[in-house]
Design a protein around this nucleic acid. Structure first.
Lengths: 220, 220
DNA sequence: AAATCAAGTTTCAGATTTGTAACTTTGACG
DNA sequence: CGTCAAAGTTACAAATCTGAAACTTGATTT
């Protein structure tokens, strides 16, 4: 489930957002104490942040710019006046999208889903729980210890991660791994999954990949 | 410079858009012949497409759905209808965003920049000109021919692609490739760049990586 | 023009990755 | 339980990847 942090000072609006997001299957986390927003943004993990540009005693632009120095979490800006759009445009703020208030709930959900879909594929640093996934380097890092995945292992892990919690069939994995014309021993997949499991176990996650006999695999 | 294709039948509006985009630093490409829009969308490369949903004799939604089967280029719909349902529908047809006419130039530019930023992050299928870059598989594909990059080659290419047009120093590449503590022959980088160049040459891009003596490399 | 130096290329041996084969384990179903 | 097919594991050889070394190229400096 995707966790979405809400940074919005109008209580009514904040509660509305929370309910809307919860109903849409997200896990909303509302920030209520604005004295240390910056710390809260940096310290607690979320998949996306909804950030009101007009917070009391806080400059949303500076806040975001500062946050961006250390974090790639996608941010959608909430702006209330049309005139603000010019400010937003003129600065290199680092937001991934913006919504003008008052917003249409359907549109907001669509934008959230669009931003999440895109950022899920970021090559630089993806996350699986507390594991950092670098597709380019082909590495998994957890608590400072690192495992280097081979190309095949990375392809399998990526497929499972893209559809975390869902069953991915062996056929789908085979298609992702090998061209249709090149014949491969059906067992080769088992071998590669086994190797991937070995490396996940080294990171303290021996049960991350679950087998569903006759169906496929699930990344928990 | 980002190339934006404009598909809009009202001449005045089209010209206005061209000028607006050019002034904002984009390269506008206006489609004027509507008899084969679909082919033009598919055949000529652009970073983003502005598509009028109401073209004479063409159903914009069908056009988009068809286009999406083979292409991930972001599309912003231009629509004159204002009911919410239409907006929602156009996004579910595969559009990345929509704008209702008459549109505010500032808003339009903002949306373009947001969509481009989002799509620039896609890790699964990045683009270098007309080359498809798959980080996970470590492959480059151009005109149907594919080259498999090794991990090192991919890291170098990714670094250069991230900062396309800028000079990336040899030191920066070395840092991305090897941990500081492990000693590697300085020449190893030259070898890896050479190998990467060889593969790019196989794809018909022998000059893609330029050497700047004493400074670094630039991906053109 | 010669000297110098950064970068490119080729070759080679060690390391890693990979699919296959043979064998073991698991769990569903009678 | 016992059977049996599906999935897991291990060992191994072939293919690929990789850095070092030796040598070449090309540009800049003297």
């Amino acid at each position: 489930m995707k966790r979405i942090m809400i940074i919005e000072d109008e209580t009514t609006l904040r509660d509305e957002l929370s309910i809307l997001l919860k109903n849409a299957g997200y896990e909303p986390v509302a920030v209520t104490d604005y004295s240390n927003v910056s710390e809260q943004m940096k310290s607690s993990y979320s998949d996306l942040i909804l950030l009101d540009i007009n917070l009391p005693n806080v400059n949303g632009e500076t806040l975001l710019q500062d946050f961006r120095k250390s974090n790639d979490t996608p941010v959608i800006m909430l702006t209330s006046r049309t005139t603000e759009i010019d400010e937003v445009l003129s600065m290199s703020y680092g937001a991934d999208d913006y919504i003008t208030k008052p917003y249409n709930p359907t549109i907001l959900l669509l934008r959230i889903s669009a931003v999440l879909k895109r950022s899920a594929k970021v090559g630089a640093v993806q996350k699986y729980h507390d594991v950092e996934v670098s597709t380019v380097k082909g590495s998994l890092t957890r608590n400072g210890s690192e495992q280097i995945l081979t190309k095949n292992e990375m392809i399998i892990f990526q497929q499972l991660l893209d559809r975390q919690g869902e069953i991915v069939t062996r056929d789908e994995l085979m298609t992702a791994l090998w061209d249709n014309d090149e014949f491969v021993n059906d067992n080769a997949l088992s071998v590669n999954v086994s190797r991937l499991r070995g490396k996940l176990a080294e990171l303290g996650l021996p049960e991350a990949i679950e087998t569903r006999k006759k169906q496929g695999y699930v990344l928990k």
